Structures are given as structure tokens and as C-alpha cells.
Computed example of a mutant assay.
Amino acid sequence: MNSLIARSGLFDDFFKDVAPGFFVKPLHGDPLPSPAQIRIDVKEAADAYTVQAEIPGVTKEDIHVVIDGPVVTLRAEVKQQDSQTQDEKVLRTERYYGSVARSFQLASDIDSDKAKARYENGVLTLTLPKKASLAGQRLQID
């Protein structure tokens, strides 16, 4: 069997075992999370979609939801909060500043006037009612 080990994980484990805490080098600002790191669950009912998105560590004021027909775009502004006193120095921080966004398309257009959003405990819950479809109406022939 082949075992794949990530290069960074291999070195991190090696240095952690050899001398834990000694080989920590200063680093500020790891890369931003990829759009795929906004994890979503989408459920469909007859009249609406329910979307739950994990967006931890941001305030609800920094989350933006845009609905354009069947396309939903989630965007979050992630802000790093650095604080340092005179008696300490930062060795490593994995917090960052920037934005992350994810778009996805649903099968039906969304009635954006009736859509609702709630953010609680790092989870954004969207209730997205489907737009009434005029498809299937019979046309009167004159």
C-alpha cells in the first residue's frame, strides 16, 4: 500500500517530535481559504431551497449574499485581529485578512424579495423561495 504524506505535514511532524516548540519560525498570514472551504449543504423542498454554509470566525456584517436568478454568491470578509504587548512577541499567527467567496447555481430562479438569511454560531442559513414559474401555461389560440 502507498501512503501519501503531505510535505508540510511530514516536516511539521518531524520537528515536533525532535524538539517541540524549538523550530517554530515566525510566520504571518497563511494563505486565504479556498472557495471550497465554505462548506455548504443544500436542501430542496417543493417551494424553497434551504442552504447552510459554514463561515466561522466572521461577523454577520462581514457576510454578503447576492442572488441573481438561480445563482447564489456568498462572500465573507475575514479580518485578522493582531494584538501584541511590549512583554511578548508573536512567533506564529495563522489568522489573516481578505475575502473568500463561493457561487453556485440552483435549478430554479430564486424569489430574492422573499429570501431570508440567519447567521448563528458560524453557520449561515438561507431560506430561498422558488420564483413562481409561468412554464406550463396553455396559450389560447385565436
Rank of each mutant, 00 (worst) to 15 (best):
V66E: 11
E88G: 09
S133K: 02
E44L: 06
S103L: 01
Q137C: 06
L27I: 08
Q52S: 11
P35N: 10
Q105K: 15
P20S: 14
L139F: 10
D109P: 11
P70A: 15
I40T: 15
R95S: 09
P31I: 13
K60T: 00
E61R: 10
G57L: 05
S103E: 07
F23P: 08
F14C: 02
D30P: 13
D68P: 00
S103Q: 14
L128W: 02
L91M: 03
T73M: 12
D12G: 12
Q140Y: 06
T125A: 06
E120T: 13
R7I: 14
Q137G: 04
I67M: 03
Y49I: 13
A115V: 02
E54L: 10
G98W: 06
D68G: 04
G21A: 00
T127Y: 11
D62F: 01
S3H: 08
I40Q: 07
A132S: 14
P70R: 14
G69K: 14
E61H: 03
E54D: 13
Q52V: 04
A6N: 11
S99N: 11
T127A: 15
L106I: 12
R118D: 07
L124V: 13
Q84R: 08
V71D: 12
P70Q: 13
L134Y: 04
L32I: 10
A107H: 14
I110M: 08
L106F: 15
I67C: 03
Q84G: 00
F15H: 13
Q86W: 06
G29E: 09
D113A: 14
